[in-house]
Design a protein around this nucleic acid. Structure first.
Lengths: 363, 363
DNA sequence: CTGAAAGCGCTAACAC
DNA sequence: GTGTTAGCGCTTTCAG
């Protein structure tokens, strides 16, 4: 069969875009069977060296590049993983993705970030569609999926780790407020007794958890709270809260829900003529890049997003690999991606905190 | 043909993962041909309503979900677009992607962000592999590609807009320094004569362009420069530069290459006992989120990354659509994605800038 | 309006 | 070592 009846499809129509060369055309040009070309492409070394060179020449002459869709159809490998996120963008997600990508790269996988929106039901459906689209070898959902029929023998694993709610606000591990306890107890150790909390927007689980942790720790350590101000991430509100503080409030430490509120609080303190930290300690959250260079530099909480992404991706790759090996259900306990006593967040102590003043500022 | 010889492939091996139902199984269950199922799935309304309902039932009973790989093989549509970026993460890229995603969503496309690394040659090759992988209907490269054989009849368009160099540092439009001119000339209008520039890391094209624009504008407007300090994005260096300024420098305005340097410069000024902006004006770049809440709030430059992403994606979708229509080469001028007089960046005037002092600070 | 046949480009399995 | 055959799951084309 020499000419294979010229390009089988289409060139009768002039508007048709040029067909890309296929493996068969390469084979014909190299004088071998298409199968041998396939082997060569796969890196199969059983192919005669001479032939391999001839084939390589043909590939280059024809500017051949493999059709990954066709390949995937046969061998079920696309080299791609999907990461599901709700719509919106959060810097933390960028960092998580960059950590995840690092691991995926090492495993020769490409990451596709897919946004899923709509109701919980719709998102579930989208997730399953993706899982069964065969476009991916694994799916990592960073948003909560209400109900996931995961027949453990599904070819493509779907790993769920709810880190974001439907509006891309951190939840679960991302909203954990543990470090707040560390901050307050250490400040207490430095003599602070009376605190104020500048809370964020309660639509964010993190803001709620930090406020609750604040109140809980105050009570646990037998300290005093002068109150919780609902700032809703609004810097102006935080600044005003400080500016409007009664002269005799007795507050010596302010726990802000993030660096913006903390920076604004410093601004208010400056306005009052209070020195930070000599007369007032202030803490933030997020370890924003500027937090290190403000005056004073800000004590805050760094969340290790990239490492979180790495861990999640390692877990997904494990599951993918075990599925590929055809692991029996029970044989593979699939350890939790976040096991052991790893700390997701860490307090960064800087200049904005210090020992409590002998007498609280009162002017 | 009733039983179709039971699942054709594999169930002899117990470890084999369960096969997903196919269109044929749905068809058999609904008592129609697989073709009719295909039509129904496509939303073809010529299918009898009764039948459509029966088919839908079968789909649900079997928990059928289409194999997008098989579908793509036939109709060359995957509903996916690739965005190429160099390795690394930049917040600006997050914003660009989020704008691009917005438009892609509206066009029912999913975006895949693919990292391309290695030498220029290797990146070129990767880009072409992706273009011809048939996994995508279009490719948007935000990194520079040295040499792209773009046969205008290629089925899948590859649009290139070099915004990042191989290490994810902004170049091209992203490094444009235009607003620096606006800042300096307006400050000049407020009486400032003697300036200082805190430059960033010159590995970044943006840092170089801002420095050049600074020098050029100083000369053009017949102002004085007290010098350029190479801070390399290091806040400490910027702070020191201000702290170490001679008492009689005569400087009344500092142009910092980004908000971190600017914030650190403010910190240095505070250390010197200089009031900002009464005695010294300071400007940044990036419009970081905290820039609005520092004391004083920071005059800076906001770059409209998301809008840039939207425009680029609109352009790509245009090209994809015209290719799909089988446009003849010349018929479609494919206008530049960034045409007209749209402004990518904008100066945000805040409290850190003001009229020049009567006499420069000297203490 | 519905069914049958053909084939997208590739690789797994088996011959030779 | 290399060639032949079959078929992945779907849609397109063409009959009816």
């Amino acid at each position: 069969m020499a000419s294979e009846s010229s390009p089988p499809a289409g060139p009768s129509n002039p508007a048709t875009p040029r067909r890309r060369p296929t493996i068969r055309e390469v084979a014909r040009r190299a004088g071998v069977s298409h199968q041998t070309v396939s082997r060569h492409l796969k890196g199969d070394t059983t192919v005669n060296e001479q032939l391999a060179a001839t084939i390589q020449d043909a590939i280059e002459a024809l500017d051949y590049r493999p059709n990954l869709v066709a390949r995937a159809m046969r061998n079920h490998r696309t080299g791609r993983l999907a990461v599901l996120l709700p719509p919106g963008s959060a810097i933390s997600s960028l960092e998580i993705l960059s950590g995840a990508k690092e691991i995926a790269d090492a495993g020769e996988y490409v990451l596709e970030v897919v946004t899923v929106s709509g109701s919980a039901e719709m998102r579930d459906r989208r997730a399953l569609e993706l899982r069964d689209s065969r476009l991916f070898e694994g799916v990592l959902a960073l948003t909560s999926l209400s109900d996931l029929p995961q027949p453990d023998d599904a070819r493509v694993p779907l790993v769920t780790m709810p880190l974001y709610d439907e509006a891309m606000r951190g939840i679960g591990a991302l909203a954990s407020a543990g470090p707040e306890h560390e901050i307050i107890s250490r400040l207490a150790g430095m003599g602070h007794r009376r605190f104020l909390h500048l809370a964020g927007n309660y639509a964010h689980a993190g803001a709620v958890r930090r406020r609750d942790m604040y109140l809980q720790t105050i009570e646990e350590l037998d300290l005093e709270s002068a109150g919780v101000v609902d700032c809703g991430w609004d810097g102006d509100a935080a600044r005003r809260a400080v500016v409007d503080l009664p002269a005799d409030s007795g507050i010596t430490a302010i726990i802000a829900a993030n660096d913006i509120l903390a920076t604004a609080a410093v601004s208010g303190a400056i306005r009052r003529g209070w020195n930070v930290p000599e007369e007032l300690s202030i803490t933030g959250w997020d370890d924003t890049r500027v937090a290190a260079v403000t005056t004073p530099s800000m004590t805050t909480v760094a969340v290790h997003h990239a490492e979180l992404g790495r861990r999640l991706m390692r877990h997904l790759l494990d599951v993918v690999a075990s599925r590929r090996r055809g692991a029996d259900d029970a044989s593979d306990p699939a350890p939790s991606p976040l096991e052991d006593d790893w700390r997701l967040a860490e307090v960064i102590w800087r200049e904005s905190t210090g020992p409590a003043p002998q007498t609280p500022p009162a002017r």
